[in-house]
């Protein structure tokens, strides 16, 4: 009771949610997709760990980034991975990216009245070989985009991406037009800049950066070779390929 008396039963509601900070982002290219996230996990002002991944390889052509309430995020990724495994057993192939996106929407909406408190960004290669990014809200609204930031530093990163990826507020030189898709090296530079900027101005972002790069089948890899410590995570030959680049971010 608001009067503070004990004449009525006291109610204390258990809050099943918390926020664990961090930021994720994804950018689609013509024949590649880049999905990145920082590795800090925090609650309030405490850093719980400096390494808790929130970007996951789902298949050789799909990568999922999950941000929000970490326990929900981990459980959600686990359930998506389980559904993808069942799909492999039933169809003897990996689920296509667009189908994974629809699956994620259905799974999120299935919990409409007790939502997974998670923002999802799915990146990868579409069946026609183009790079794609799908972004979701916690209850499953989704759309395909060229780029998206989500999480604690969304408001810092997204307008920067509007400017650098979509060339918003920029005028192309006379007789020319802005490129529809940027080269991979430019995209990687923008991703790293976005995270160093977010780390500088947001306390919940930092520690480490994991950048997944998905390349369409048969695409040359030489523009990835310049990067220090690129790990290939592809499981099967002659298909789309997944790579991981890890970088340190400031830890303060």
């Amino acid at each position: 009771m608001p009067d503070g008396s004990f004449s009525h039963p006291q109610q204390r509601q258990f809050n099943p949610y918390t926020e664990n900070g961090g930021t994720i982002l994804a950018i689609a290219g013509k024949d590649f997709s880049v999905i990145a996230g920082d590795t800090r996990q925090s609650e309030g002002y405490s850093i719980q760990t400096r390494y808790a991944p929130k970007v996951f390889r789902l298949t050789d052509r799909a990568v999922l980034a999950v941000n929000g309430f970490a326990a929900d995020g981990n459980m959600f990724v686990k359930k998506v991975q389980q559904r993808l495994e069942w799909y492999r057993h039933a169809h003897a192939k990996d689920m296509p990216l667009g189908a994974i996106a629809r699956l994620i929407q259905t799974m999120l909406y299935g919990r409409r009245f007790f939502p997974y408190y998670v923002y999802n960004i799915l990146g990868g290669i579409e069946e026609d070989g183009t790079g794609a990014v799908y972004s979701f809200d916690p209850v499953g609204s989704y759309e395909r985009e060229a780029c998206r930031a989500a999480g604690a530093a969304q408001s810092l990163v997204q307008p920067f991406l509007d400017n650098q990826i979509y060339f918003k507020n920029q005028q192309a030189p006379a007789g020319q037009s802005h490129p529809l898709h940027l080269p991979l090296s430019d995209v990687l530079a923008i991703v790293i800049d976005s995270f160093t900027s977010a780390t500088e101005r947001h306390i919940e972002v930092g520690d480490g950066l994991e950048i997944y790069v998905v390349l369409t089948k048969g695409r040359p890899t030489q523009d990835l070779e310049g990067y220090r410590g690129v790990k290939e995570l592809t499981t099967r030959p002659d298909g789309d390929r997944v790579f991981l680049i890890q970088r340190e971010l400031k830890k303060d």
Partner: peptide, 11 residues
């Protein structure tokens, strides 16, 4: 202000 911080830090 948050958005300004993000873009300014980048540009």
């Amino acid at each position: 202000s948050e958005k300004l911080f993000g873009v300014a830090e980048g540009l």
